[in-house]
């Protein structure tokens, strides 16, 4: 069994003349918490969409838990927990029914109410998801991703639409899943959340991985002060895009 949870080589996605992802080489070790960062449009969601077989690559290869993500869909998805970005729920189905569908399809033994409890939705178990706020939908998606103790969690912008309690919850869940031994791969453009939870980050810009490592390494490489945050690293690496709003202030 390979020691890598995610491995891509030369992974490329083009839409006509637009290059969304440009030859990505990525390695995520089993058991690590990997933050996949970058400004909007950098190619983070494209990468995740490719790894989950939502879209097909123009060229390049990938392995997820050792499986080909485009041909071994059933085997790989059994062991991945997925929290997608810009998703929709089923209006007429209750939170519990959403979880039942995931648990039954994955053919795992898990309790919908326990999962809802974990994300703070125990009181809303029987309510139709159509009545949910964006934050509640995000919590429901997180609960669905946790069903059956997956080996790999792929969370696409998991902090979207969450209040500070929700953000803390995601952090706690990531910590707990990591302690259990799961690999966590998540994307974010909200940088402050990331450095607290990640073992390693990769920074994507214009469809390319521009830097990868831990915050300490970045500080050294970029000759930043010890109290430099990941924001500073980010600005340094992707200055043209990110620094603009700062200057206009």
């Amino acid at each position: 069994m390979t020691s890598l949870a995610i491995e891509t080589a030369g992974l490329t996605k083009r839409y006509g003349d637009t290059v969304a992802l440009d030859g990505l080489d990525l390695s995520v070790e089993r058991g690590e918490v990997y933050g996949f960062l970058g400004p909007n449009g950098a190619g983070k969601s494209t990468t995740i969409d490719l790894l989950l077989n939502y879209i097909k690559p123009t060229s390049g290869t990938a392995r997820v838990l050792g499986y080909d993500p485009w041909t071994d869909v059933v085997a790989s998805h059994r062991r991945i927990g997925i929290c997608p970005d810009r998703f929709g729920t089923y209006d007429g189905m209750s939170a519990r029914q959403h979880l039942r569908l995931v648990i039954d399809t994955k053919d795992v033994d898990d309790d919908p109410d326990r999962l809802l409890e974990r994300v703070g939705l125990a009181d809303a178990a029987t309510r139709p998801a159509g009545e949910f706020s964006q934050g509640m939908e995000q919590r429901l998606a997180l609960a669905m991703s946790l069903a059956g103790e997956p080996d790999l969690l792929i969370l696409d912008e998991p902090f979207t639409g969450l209040d500070p309690h929700g953000v803390a919850l995601v952090r706690d869940v990531v910590d707990a899943e990591s302690d259990r031994g799961a690999t966590v791969f998540f994307s974010s453009h909200v940088l402050g959340q990331v450095e607290v939870v990640c073992d390693r980050v990769g920074i994507l810009h214009h469809g390319r991985l521009v830097e990868e490592g831990s915050l300490a390494v970045f500080r050294e490489q970029l000759d930043l002060s010890d109290d430099a945050t990941i924001e500073d690293v980010f600005v340094e690496l992707t200055s043209e895009t990110v620094s603009a709003p700062e200057e206009s202030r």
Partner: peptide, 20 residues
Amino acid sequence: AERSSGSLKFLLGLPLTRTD
């Protein structure tokens, strides 16, 4: 409609082929 609402992402994330 699931494609435009994004709920298809959940279905595609399940251990099912697209044919399933």
